[in-house]
Write a protein that binds this DNA or RNA. Structure first.
Length: 872
RNA sequence: GGACGUUUAGCUCAGCUGGUAGAGCAUUCGCUUGACGUGCGAAGGGUUCACAGGUUCGAGUCCUGUAACGUCCACCA
């Protein structure tokens, strides 16, 4: 297919059409193919509630680059897409929508609520997927999955039952984090600490024997209703003889003991801690050690419960105010001290979490963490950048049991059934209705599982596990996981231990971490700041390729990047540059039937560009294999713009305009070969424009995305041609610079070239003539020219006879300056060569390099000197 | 309290296993050079890469320490 190529690249006219052609071609679909090696990436499933944001844009772009690269290399490359049901986030959205209608989920009940949730999922769940397509993501959509679909649900239940049977899942009363807004427990990982202003209320607790008071301080006075002890440090002199005495808990008028525990720090605050086992994780531990009763004074909504006596029914905050007042009235409040302290908040809604005792389901982590630590230690899983492993280890080494039950409806329901008659508990793969023991009806646990429980299984649940599918056998373990460092605990760590436990293998061999996309000022993009940039608007305006290029260029693994108008504009300009190079080539191809092969024999400049291209092929491939995507794309950019366009196209014009059909054909073939190959190198980064261009040039095959990745070919390497062209280019630059300096940039002048290598320059005469704006060119080993501008390059002396423009004095000064600089460089070279330590210890190739440099310099110095003599 | 990251041209950032610094943007000058002004050519700009030591023949690149900024973890009631 051919299209008229517009003067500027218009991605809007290209992208959707190309994407559709890829889908229609079935190129995204990866098959189980024993003749190929598999390469697999599973997508970090975006939330169905989500809208595409810049974080996704970067994440998906990196994955698509890797997948497209491997696919072209001949792997059976599977990029498995899907979405996450995101229990808390989704449920919150639906509850919110219902609130606007004036109904609550309790009113309509579980079933009706879930119906709404699924309807919502059907309506909005596809939105993010459509947005991913806009980026050009080459996901295998035929294999799209959802964390709550049948297969994933089956996997979740299988894992739950297995872990339960192994004793790695248990139900128990522990301190958990309760979010009063989301009305569910959340895991430790889901608590974010925020520094907030608060108060230290200093309170007196009287001794029961009337022998005075003990002073303590608390930030949460309302919890005192659940105090069951007061603790001091065992070594604290002040209380040595008091430990063991009873205290009267104010307001409650109950006796509680004064105990000694190492947990208390003598130097902090008053050195006295009230112990509330039901509402503080540390106190809970203390309580266990001292066998203290646990009194929960709050309900799940964050209101004081019946244990709170007269405060029952108040919210925690109301109770706090009242309690402070009451203490004050009784003269037990000593003072109030303002402090800044860290408060745990819910990562979803930001509400201050309430630590409280609750009966929940937990995963016992220690046995799972050990193999997970080893997998990274031994290198079975590699983190890029490597430093991420420290974060991982520190978390895994200090891991606590994982609270997995949520008081939500949208999610995987816990497969546990209770018999209210005989009190038995059953955990089962199959739904149960009657008690296998006593035949009475069973009641299923109302809770659902933490969303991350299902995403932890994603690398294998999506491939069909627990069934033994062909896909699972072929594509698992997956290869690369691409994700942001912000979900290393939530997701990466949990996939690792889940996979090791269930599959007895790692889920992936490499984790490629990227950073955050920040705004132009370096701030995190956020809704509240309103500084978010919508990738879809960027795509609309600049094209997906420009967006993709922007998020990978100048970026290194694990580091954040800033997104700015300047950057996206620069990317757009690059796309336009490529576009016009293609336009030029196509224009010159009209009426020619040429293939995609190189000509049989190559001229010097063709040898040079092909050799340079060939090197780029090798380097870009290596960079991609090492996940150095930013470096890889930078190399393609530099080659395409600075080498191919700025030099080779200009050079090729000469032969194409000369009228010699054979010569022109050679140039055209070379242009096509190098440019098409470069389009392939660029394709993973900028898939749309490269496809559009590749199709418009002579090519073999249906699509660039299933064409073969260019291979480095040692036969194309030509150091001699590169050296020769390097000299020619240096001469051209030097002439241009001199003319620019003299304000006659395009003046056509004669050019005399005195050199020891005349062949090179004679061969390149036409090039020199055109690019240096020369009239006629003469090449010899030496010239005697009066009143000429002289230029000395490493390889030649160049004369521009512009007597009328030459200022002898100025020429002399310039040459002196050049001589000076050459001599200074020479001095450092000589210093090295005379340094015995250097000569002895430096490797031979470095010494050779310095020597060669020295020879060049001395030749240059000699030439400059003779010019100075000639002038003087 | 602990760990980690960053600190390189005016701005945003590259710089792999150590061999005397690069890009994009911005700036200045000059170009209707028949692919592209979203362009072309040329130029200036780092007191040598936050600072102080050290290792080395040689350090932006390795080690130690300091400072500023940032991130994560822990959390003292």
């Amino acid at each position: 297919m051919t299209h008229e190529l517009a003067k500027t690249y218009e991605p809007q006219n290209v992208e959707d059409r190309i994407y559709k052609s890829w889908i229609d071609g079935g190129y995204f679909h990866a098959q189980v193919d024993p003749s190929k090696k598999p390469y697999t990436i599973v997508i970090p499933p975006p939330n169905i509630t989500g809208q595409l944001h810049m974080g996704h844009a970067m994440d998906e772009t990196l994955q698509d680059i890797l997948i497209r690269f491997r696919r072209m290399q001949g792997y059976s490359a599977l990029w498995l897409p899907g979405t996450d049901h995101a229990s808390i986030a989704t449920e919150a959205k639906i509850v919110e929508a219902m609130r606007e209608e004036g109904i609550t989920k309790e009113e309509i009940g579980r079933e009706a609520f879930l119906e709404r949730a699924w309807a919502w999922k059907e309506k909005y769940g596809g939105r993010i997927v459509e947005q991913l397509k806009k980026l050009g993501s080459s996901c295998d959509w035929e294999r799209e999955r959802f964390t709550l679909d049948e297969g994933c649900s089956k996997a979740v239940r299988e894992v739950f039952v297995r872990l339960y049977e192994k004793g790695l899942i248990y139900r128990g009363e522990r301190i958990i984090n309760w979010c009063p807004h989301c009305k569910t427990s959340i895991s430790d990982a889901e608590v974010e600490f925020e520094e907030k202003d608060g108060f230290f209320w200093h309170i007196r607790y009287p001794y029961a024997d009337g022998s005075g008071y003990i002073e303590l301080a608390t930030t949460r006075p309302e919890t005192m209703l659940g105090d069951t002890a007061v603790a001091v440090h065992p070594d604290d002199e002040r209380y040595r003889d008091k430990v063991g005495k009873m205290l009267i808990l104010p307001l409650v008028n109950k006796e509680i003991p004064l105990i000694a525990d190492e947990y208390v720090e003598m130097d902090f605050g008053t050195g006295v801690v009230k112990i509330t086992p039901a509402h503080d994780p540390n106190d809970f531990e203390v309580g266990l050690r001292h066998n203290l009763p646990v009194i929960n004074v709050m309900d799940e909504e964050g209101y004081m419960n019946e244990n709170a006596g007269k405060y029952a029914g108040m919210s925690a905050l109301e109770a706090r105010e009242q309690i402070v007042k009451d203490l004050e009235a009784q003269g037990l409040l000593l003072r109030v001290e303002p402090i800044r302290h860290n408060v745990g908040t819910c990562y979803r809604c930001g509400t201050v979490v309430e630590p409280m005792i609750s009966k929940q389901w937990f995963v016992k982590m220690k046995p799972l963490a050990d193999p997970a630590i080893r997998a990274v230690e031994t290198g079975k899983i590699r983190f890029i950048p490597e430093r991420m492993d420290k974060i991982y280890f520190s978390w895994m080494n200090n891991i606590k049991d994982w609270c997995i039950s949520r008081q939500l409806w949208w999610g995987h329901r816990i497969p546990a059934w209770y018999c209210d008659s005989c009190g038995e508990l059953f955990v089962s793969r199959e739904d149960l209705t009657v008690c296998p023991k006593c035949g009475k009806p069973l009641r299923q646990d109302p809770d659902t599982l933490d969303t991350w429980f299902s995403s932890a299984l994603w690398p294998f649940s999506t491939l069909g596990w627990p069934e033994k599918t062909e896909e699972l056998k072929y594509f698992f373990p997956t290869n690369t996981l691409v994700t942001g460092y912000d979900i290393i605990f939530f997701w990466v760590a949990r996939m690792i231990f889940s996979s090791l436990e269930q599959m007895n293998d790692v889920p992936f061999d490499t984790v490629f971490f990227h950073g955050l996309v920040r705004d132009a000022q370096g701030r995190k993009m956020s809704k509240s700041l309103g500084n978010g940039i919508d990738p879809l608007e960027i795509i609309e305006k600049y094209g997906a390729d420009a967006l993709r290029y922007t998020v990978v260029t100048g970026n290194s693994p694990g580091n954040d990047i800033r997104f700015s108008d300047e950057k996206i504009a620069a990317s757009r300009n690059f796309a336009n540059k490529i576009w016009n190079a293609a336009r030029f080539i196509r224009m010159n191809l009209e009426g020619e039937e040429i293939g995609a092969q190189l000509p049989e024999t190559l001229t010097l400049e063709e040898q040079w560009i092909v050799s340079a291209y060939n090197r780029i092929v090798r380097e870009v491939t290596e960079n991609l294999e090492k996940f150095e995507l930013g470096i890889a794309v930078q190399k393609v950019y530099d080659f395409l713009w600075d080498v191919f366009c700025d030099w080779y196209i200009e050079i090729a014009k000469i032969r194409m305009q000369q009228g010699d059909r054979e010569a022109a054909l050679g140039a055209k073939k070379t242009l096509v070969f190098v440019f098409s190959g470069t389009m392939k190198l660029l394709h993973p980064f900028m898939p749309f424009i490269t496809e559009e261009i590749w199709q418009s040039l002579p090519h073999e095959g249906e699509s660039i995305m299933v064409s073969q990745w260019p291979k480095y070919d040692p036969a194309l390497e030509n150091a001699e041609a590169e050296e020769k062209m390097g000299n020619v280019m240096e001469a051209i630059r030097a002439v241009r610079a001199r003319k620019a300096e003299m304000n006659v940039p395009t003046k056509k002048t004669h050019l005399y070239i005195a050199t020891a290598h005349p062949d090179t320059y004679r061969e390149s005469e036409a090039i020199l003539q055109k690019l240096s704006y020369s009239a006629e060119i003469e090449v010899a080993d030496r010239f005697e020219i009066d009143g000429a501008v002289t230029i000395v390059t490493a390889d030649a002396r160049l004369y521009l006879p512009m007597a009328e423009l030459v200022d002898r004095e100025a020429e002399l000064r310039r040459l002196e300056k050049e001589l000076d600089s050459a001599r200074r460089q020479m001095a450092t070279v000589e210093a090295k060569l005379q340094n015995e330590a250097f000569m002895q210890k430096a490797p031979q190739n470095v010494i050779d390099g310095v020597r060669a440099n020295g020879e060049k310099l001395s030749e240059k110095i000699r030439m400059i000197q003779s010019e100075i003599e000639a002038l003087g």
